[in-house]
Computed example of a mutant assay.
Amino acid sequence: MIYQELTHNVIGLCMEIHSALGPGLLESAYQECLFYKLEQNGLYVQKQKPMPVIYEEVKLDCGYRIDLLIEDKIILEIKSVEILHDVHLAQILTYLKLGNYKLGLLLNFNVAHLRDGLKRVINT
């Protein structure tokens, strides 16, 4: 599945979950629902995938974890905050760089309309 089609499907499922649950829940609730729904739709999904930091020749397990990794291609970083800040964007950019992934979706479920809480992030 190519990135555009995969992204379209994932965003559609995110919107479906947001429409059903609305804003105000914990990130973990949205993550579990998304994990279930993505798998139900036949996608390979890893939840809380460890993201080590490699410094010089040392691989350091610092406790960083990707919320959801879909088809080993797209990172989903899930938030439920009043507003997204630069630090949230920096977080997903770092995950993209460390894992050598090309595309991430930063999703803030604590909004009235999910389109207002969605950022597509590309690793250049």
Rank of each mutant, 00 (worst) to 15 (best):
M15A: 00
A112N: 04
D61R: 06
F35M: 11
D61I: 02
L25K: 11
Q31R: 06
F35I: 11
K59D: 06
E27W: 04
A20D: 11
L96Q: 11
T7Q: 04
H8D: 07
S28R: 05
G99P: 07
I17L: 13
Y101L: 13
M1I: 05
K37W: 02
L6T: 06
L34R: 01
I122W: 13
Q46P: 03
N108Y: 00
H18S: 09
V81K: 01
S19V: 05
D67W: 00
G104N: 02
K73T: 03
L106S: 08
L69D: 13
Y30R: 10
N100P: 01
K47V: 02
E77D: 07
D67I: 02
I83H: 10
K49C: 06
K97M: 06
E16N: 05
I54A: 10
V58Y: 04
P50C: 00
E39V: 07
G42N: 08
K49S: 09
G42Y: 12
Y30T: 05
Q46N: 12
L26V: 08
K37I: 04
P23S: 07
S80M: 08
Y95A: 05
G117T: 00
L93Q: 15
D86T: 14
N9T: 12
L84W: 08
Y30I: 07
Y44A: 15
H8V: 04
K37Q: 12
Y101R: 06
L118Y: 03
S19R: 14
T124W: 15
T94R: 12
I122S: 10
L114N: 05
G24W: 03
I122V: 15
L13P: 01
V121W: 08
P23T: 02
E39Y: 02
Q31W: 01
K73A: 11
E27Q: 11
Y55A: 07
E77A: 04
M15Y: 00
H8F: 12
Q4S: 10
Y44Q: 15
I70S: 00
P23M: 13
Y44G: 13
L114G: 13
A90V: 09
L118P: 03
M51S: 15
G22I: 00
L84V: 06
I17Y: 01
D116I: 03
E56T: 07
S28G: 09
L93D: 10
I92G: 08
V81S: 00
K119L: 03
